[in-house]
Design a protein around this nucleic acid. Structure first.
Length: 751
RNA sequence: GAACUUGUAGCUCAGUUGGUUAGAGCGCAUCAUUGACAUUGAUGAGGUCAGAGGUUCGAAUCCUCUCAAGUUCACCA
C-alpha cells in the first residue's frame, strides 16, 4: 500500500511551487493592490469604454468628516463595494461617489467638549470665528475617514470626492431652499420647538428621545378648583384651566372665569371645555400653559378666542422670565422648588405623589427637552410626501429590508412639518435677511471690539455700535415672529440688512446629497449621466431622518426620485446579539480586524449570511474563519496553477457535470447579486468554492477523473465570482497567474 | 395603545417562486495527514424548523390564532 501510494504521487505533483507562498500574506499585498487599482484609475467610470451604456451609481452615505470609522461603516463599505464591483464587472457605467458630511450638531457638540477642556465655550467667540475654528478642526481630521475606507478596499471614485460644505454644494442647497420658498413650501412661524438648553438649539421631532421618568405630580388649590401638574413652575404662563366637556363636576365653571390667589399674586383665568382632558387623571382639571407644553398649545389653538395671549416664562437658557421678582432668572429646578415651597407654606398644596411618565430628552446630551416658543423656519411636508407615497404604492422604487417599506409608509403618512432651523454655527446659514431699519426689535447677541458680549435690540444698539461691528461680532439674533425677511443668497444691496443666524438642520443638506454631488461635479455631464442613481444603501436606523427626506427633497428639486432601490443594512452586534458600545467594552474596531485577519476577512465576515434590514452578529471567530477562507482560495490557486499536471483528461461524465454545475453556480450568484441577496451570494460563493470546487473537483482531478484544463478554467471563473466579496486575495492571485492581462477589477463578469 | 421584525443544531445565523435526505461558521467527538492548504481533510453526534389549526399531492416557506423576544412610533397634567 505504501509503495502504490508513492507510485501515484508523481501523477499530480510536480514539486516546488515557484511564485506563491504557502500562506496568503495579506499584509504584503493589500496596500500594493489598492495602489495598483488607484493608479490605474479603475475606480473611475471614465476609464472604461462604456459611457452611455446602462449606468450603475451609488452615492456613498457621507460619514462625519472628523469621525474615525467603526464597524458599521465597514459594513456599508463592504456591501456597497460588492454591488459596485459586481456591476462594474458586468460592464455597466459604474460610479461610486464618496464624500463626508459636516454633521452639524454632532461635530459642534464634540468641538464644544474640546473647548470646555480649555475652559472656553462657544459664547467666547463670534460665529464667524467659531465656524473657522470648527472648519480647521474638521480639516485636521478629514483624512482619517477616507484613508480608512480605502483600507477596507472601497473602490470609490476619490477624484469625485465631495464635502457637504463645498461651496458648490452649499449653493445648490440654498437654491433648493429658494425653490421651496417660491413654491410656498417654507414658512416662518412661532411654534413650540424642542429646545435643548444645554446644546443651545432646537430639534426636529425626530431628534427627541423619550425617556421614562418618575417625577412628583403636585395637586394644589387653584381658586375654587384643584389642579394636578408635574411642572408647577410654569404656573406663571397659565392662560386657562381646562376640563372635559362631559365632566359634570365642573360643568358650571365652563365658560366662566375663576379667580385664584397665590402668595405671589392673584389671577383670573377662563375655564374651557376640551376633549383632550382626561376625567380620571388627577382631579380632571388641567392648567393650560401654551408656551411650555405642546398639548396645551393645541388646546389653546382650539380656544384661541376664549383665552388671553400667553406669555413666555422660560427662556432658552432654562431660566424664568416675565415672572414675579423673586422667581426671576431662577433655573427650572430651583423655580419648581420655590413654587412648591410657597404653595406648601400657604397651605394650597393638597397632594404630592410620584408619577411615572415619559420625558423628551436631547438625543445628544440627554438633558430634558424644553418646549419653547420660537419663530422657526418650517417646510410644509404634505405636498412633498404625497408624490412619494404614490411612488411607493406604485412600486417606482423598492425598499430591500425586512418590512421597512411598511415603516417608511407609516412615516410618510404621519409626518409633521419639518423644523429646519438650528441655533448652531456649524452648518449652512439660512439665506434669510432682515432689514434692520424696518425691524428694530430684533434681539442680537454679539461680541464687540473690546471682546465684551453685548445683548439687546438692534434698534437701540445701533445708537452705540455700527451695523458692521454688530455683524462681525454676531453670535445670534432672534427676530420677532412678524419680522419681514427676504430670501437671497447674498446680502441685498439697497438698505441695511442683517442675516439670520440660524443654520439648516444637517438633514436638510444631506437630503440633497444624491443630486448636489453630481450637479457640482467637475465632470459637467455627471448629473445627466448618473441621475437618478440605482441604489441607496444605508442603515435602517436613519430611514426617517435621511432616506425619506432624500426621496421628498430629491423628487421636489429634480422631478425624479433620487434612486430606485433602497438597501437597508442592520446594526452590527456582538456574539450575544448585544449592541456594541464603549461602555460595554464589546466594540470591534474594523482596523484592528484588518491588521489581524485582513480586509477581505473583515468584509466577508460582515456580509456573509447577512440579510437586508436585519441585524448581524459577529464574533472574533467569524473573522478568523474568513481569514482561513482567503487562505484556502490562495492555496487552491497555488495548487491548480503551479502543481497540477497539465494533461489530465478526465472522464466525460465528470467533465460534463463540472461544466453544468459551474454554469449553475454562475447563474445562482449572479441572480442573488442582482436581487440584492448579498449575504446569500457570499454564502453561495463560499460554499461552492470550498466544499464543491476544492473538496470535490480538485480531488477529482487528483484522481484523474476531471480534466485539468476545465479545473483551471473553473478557477478563473471563481476568481471572478469571488472578487466583489474578497477583492484583495483574488486580485493578488490574478496578478500572480495572469501577469500580462488587465487587473481582475477590470475583467468581465462570467455572465 | 399601535406598527414592524424575529423565533431553525450547544452558540451566531442562512435557507431564493412551496418540491428529494433542512445547511454554514464557531464549538464538540473520532480518525487521517511529510507533498496546495494543520489557516487541512474525512466521518460523526446534535433539529418534532416556538406551539396549535388550516390550504396543498407536498409546508421551515403560504393563511389564521396563541406564546415568547426585540425594535420603533404615539400618549402620559
Amino acid at each position: 500500500m505504501v509503495i502504490s501510494f508513492l507510485f501515484f504521487k508523481p501523477l499530480y505533483l510536480t514539486g516546488i511551487i515557484p511564485d506563491m507562498d504557502s500562506k496568503y500574506n495579506y499584509q504584503q499585498f493589500e496596500q500594493e493592490i489598492y495602489k495598483l487599482w488607484e493608479d490605474g484609475k479603475y475606480f473611475s467610470p471614465d476609464t472604461y469604454d462604456n459611457k452611455g451604456k446602462d449606468t450603475f451609481c451609488i452615492m456613498m452615505p457621507p460619514p462625519n468628516a472628523n469621525d474615525p470609522l467603526h464597524i458599521g461603516h465597514a459594513m456599508f463599505i463592504a456591501l456597497e463595494d460588492i454591488m459596485i464591483r459586481f456591476n462594474r464587472m458586468k460592464g455597466k457605467d459604474t460610479l461610486w461617489l464618496p464624500g463626508t458630511d459636516h454633521a452639524g450638531i454632532e461635530t459642534q457638540f464634540v468641538f464644544e467638549k474640546k473647548l470646555k477642556k480649555k475652559k472656553q465655550s462657544r459664547f467666547d467667540f463670534d460665529r464667524e470665528t467659531l465656524f473657522k475654528m470648527i472648519w480647521d478642526y474638521v480639516q485636521e481630521n478629514s483624512e482619517v475617514a477616507t484613508r480608512q475606507m480605502k483600507k477596507i478596499g472601497a473602490s470609490a471614485d476619490w477624484d469625485r470626492f465631495k464635502f457637504m460644505l463645498d461651496p458648490e454644494i452649499v449653493k445648490i442647497v440654498l437654491d433648493t431652499f429658494s425653490k421651496l420658498h417660491n413654491e410656498d413650501l417654507i414658512y416662518r412661524s412661532m411654534r413650540l420647538v424642542n429646545y435643548c438648553t444645554r446644546c443651545g438649539t432646537s430639534y426636529s421631532e425626530l431628534e427627541v428621545d423619550h425617556e421614562d421618568k418618575n417625577d412628583p405630580l403636585y395637586t394644589f388649590q387653584y381658586g375654587p378648583l384643584q389642579v394636578s401638574t408635574v411642572r408647577p413652575e410654569t404656573i406663571f404662563g397659565d392662560v386657562a384651566l381646562a376640563v372635559h366637556p362631559d365632566d359634570k363636576r365642573y360643568t358650571k365653571y365652563v365658560g366662566t372665569k375663576i379667580k385664584a390667589s397665590f402668595p405671589w399674586g392673584e389671577v383670573e383665568l377662563p375655564v374651557v371645555a376640551d376633549d383632550y382632558v382626561k376625567m380620571d387623571f388627577g382631579t380632571g382639571v388641567l392648567k393650560i400653559t401654551p408656551y411650555h407644553d405642546p398639548n396645551d398649545w393645541e388646546v389653546w389653538q382650539r380656544h384661541i378666542d376664549e383665552v388671553p395671549s400667553p406669555t413666555q416664562v422660560v427662556n432658552t437658557f432654562g431660566k424664568l422670565i416675565n415672572v414675579p421678582e423673586e422667581f426671576n432668572n431662577l433655573g427650572i429646578v430651583n423655580a419648581r422648588k420655590e413654587v412648591v415651597k410657597q404653595l406648601n407654606d400657604s397651605e394650597l398644596m393638597i397632594e404630592e405623589k410620584m408619577n411615572p411618565h415619559s420625558v423628551g430628552t436631547c438625543y445628544r446630551c440627554k438633558r430634558t427637552i424644553e418646549p419653547l416658543p420660537l419663530p422657526q423656519f418650517f417646510i410644509k411636508v404634505k405636498p412633498l410626501v404625497e408624490p412619494i407615497l404614490k411612488d411607493l404604492n406604485d412600486g417606482n422604487f423598492t425598499v430591500h429590508g425586512a418590512g421597512h417599506d411598511k415603516i417608511l409608509k407609516h412615516w410618510l403618512e404621519n409626518l409633521k412639518d419639518w423644523n429646519i432651523s438650528r441655533q448652531i454655527v456649524w452648518g449652512i446659514r439660512l439665506p434669510v435677511w432682515y432689514n434692520v431699519d424696518d425691524n428694530p426689535d430684533i434681539q442680537v447677541l454679539f461680541v464687540n471690539k473690546d471682546k465684551e458680549t453685548v445683548n439687546g435690540t438692534i434698534g437701540k444698539l445701533l445708537n452705540t455700535y455700527s451695523l458692521e461691528e454688530i455683524k462681525q461680532g454676531l453670535q445670534s439674533l432672534n427676530a420677532p415672529e412678524k419680522a419681514e425677511f427676504r430670501i437671497n443668497e447674498s446680502e441685498p444691496t439697497n438698505g441695511n440688512w442683517i442675516q439670520e443666524s440660524d443654520t439648516f438642520d444637517t438633514w436638510f443638506s444631506s437630503a440633497q446629497w444624491p443630486f448636489t454631488t453630481l450637479q457640482s461635479s467637475d465632470h459637467r455631464d455627471d448629473f445627466s449621466r448618473f441621475y437618478p442613481t440605482q441604489v441607496m444603501e444605508t442603515g435602517y436606523d436613519i430611514l426617517p431622518f435621511w432616506v425619506m427626506r432624500m426621496l421628498m427633497i430629491g423628487k421636489f428639486a429634480t422631478g425624479k426620485l433620487p434612486f430606485t432601490n433602497i438597501y437597508l443594512h442592520g446594526l452590527v452586534r456582538d456574539q450575544k446579539g448585544q449592541k456594541m458600545s464603549k461602555s460595554k467594552g464589546n466594540v470591534i474596531n474594523p482596523l484592528e480586524i484588518i491588521e489581524k485577519y485582513s480586509a477581505d476577512a473583515l468584509r466577508m465576515a460582515l456580509v456573509i449570511r447577512s440579510s437586508a434590514g436585519l441585524d448581524k452578529s459577529v464574533a472574533e471567530g467569524d473573522f478568523k474563519a474568513m481569514r482561513n477562507f482567503t487562505n484556502k482560495i490562495w492555496n487552491a490557486a497555488r495548487y491548480v496553477h503551479f502543481s497540477l499536471e497539465d494533461d489530465v483528461k478526465g472522464d466525460e461524465k465528470t467533465n460534463k457535470e463540472f461544466i453544468e454545475k459551474l454554469s449553475q453556480v454562475e447563474k445562482d450568484v449572479t441572480k442573488q447579486l442582482t436581487d440584492f441577496k448579498l449575504g446569500l451570494a457570499a454564502e453561495t460563493t463560499y460554499n461552492e468554492f470550498w466544499h464543491w470546487y476544492c473538496d470535490i473537483c480538485i480531488e477529482n482531478t487528483k484522481q484523474g477523473k476531471l480534466s485539468s484544463t476545465l479545473l483551471k478554467e473553473g478557477l478563473t471563473k471563481f476568481l471572478l465570482l469571488l472578487h466583489p466579496f474578497v477583492p484583495y486575495v483574488t486580485e493578488a492571485i490574478w496578478s500572480e497567474v495572469n501577469k500580462e492581462s488587465k487587473p481582475l477589477i477590470a475583467q468581465s463578469w462570467p455572465l
